[in-house]
């Protein structure tokens, strides 16, 4: 089972940031459970074979204040995919810092090393005012302004700053089939 962790604190954002990821999983017959980060329990983390951490809107960044609620990541050893805000969380948990950098809309990024089935210049959808990177991660690809695809040096933890549920849905499927 894949556990999809929602980071939206405004319920209405569910339709824009969570449902599109759920739809990709459903269309590919991938079993998942979807839960808000404040409701995550040790038991459900233990049951998950993989975890996806969603993104949310530019203004909905309450999850940053709640970073302690993601401490379970340090003890988890199965694959995690952090999307946008989810990538911020991965960076912050591994002692990275938030750096201000806005990108909104379609942009090209260059993936230099094979990353969840991608190794090329691809067009992606961006929606962020910050990024976070820790030195425990390697950078696999980036845009003109910042790292876009990162992977933890030891663990199977992947972070993407762009939103693959918009133009790169295969990346989510490839992660699910790792």
């Amino acid at each position: 089972m894949i556990l999809l962790i929602q980071i939206c604190n405004k319920r209405f954002h569910y339709l824009e940031f969570i449902k599109p990821i759920e739809d990709v999983l459903k269309r590919n017959n991938i079993k998942f459970e979807s839960i808000h980060y404040k409701k995550v329990t040790e038991d459900i983390i233990h049951k998950a074979e993989k975890i996806i951490i969603s993104g949310t809107s530019l203004k909905d960044n309450g999850f940053i204040k709640d970073i302690d609620k993601f401490k379970w990541i340090k003890k988890f050893d199965k694959p995690i995919l952090g999307i946008c805000g989810g990538m911020h969380i991965l960076g912050l948990i591994f002692n990275g810092e938030l750096i201000k950098q806005q990108e909104i809309g379609l942009t090209f990024i260059d993936i230099k090393q094979e990353f969840l089935g991608y190794k090329e210049k691809i067009e992606v959808y961006e929606l962020h005012n910050f990024y976070a990177i820790s030195n425990e991660f390697n950078i696999y690809g980036g845009s003109k302004y910042c790292p876009q695809a990162v992977k933890h040096k030891k663990n199977p933890f992947f972070g993407v700053l762009f939103h693959p549920e918009v133009r790169n849905k295969d990346l989510i499927v490839n992660f699910a089939y790792l």
């Binding site: 405004k10 209405f12 954002h13 339709l15 824009e16 449902k19 599109p20 739809d23 809107s57 530019l58 203004k59 909905d60 806005q102 909104i104 809309g105 379609l106 959808y125 929606l127 005012n129 549920e165 918009v166």
Partner: peptide, 21 residues
């Protein structure tokens, strides 16, 4: 993306409930 940029500039949240539907 254009609406997102305007909302960000004016410090408003932006909801797209049909996005990718």
């Amino acid at each position: 993306s254009r609406v997102q940029k305007i909302c960000d500039k004016l410090e408003l949240d932006c909801f797209n409930p049909l996005w990718q539907k």
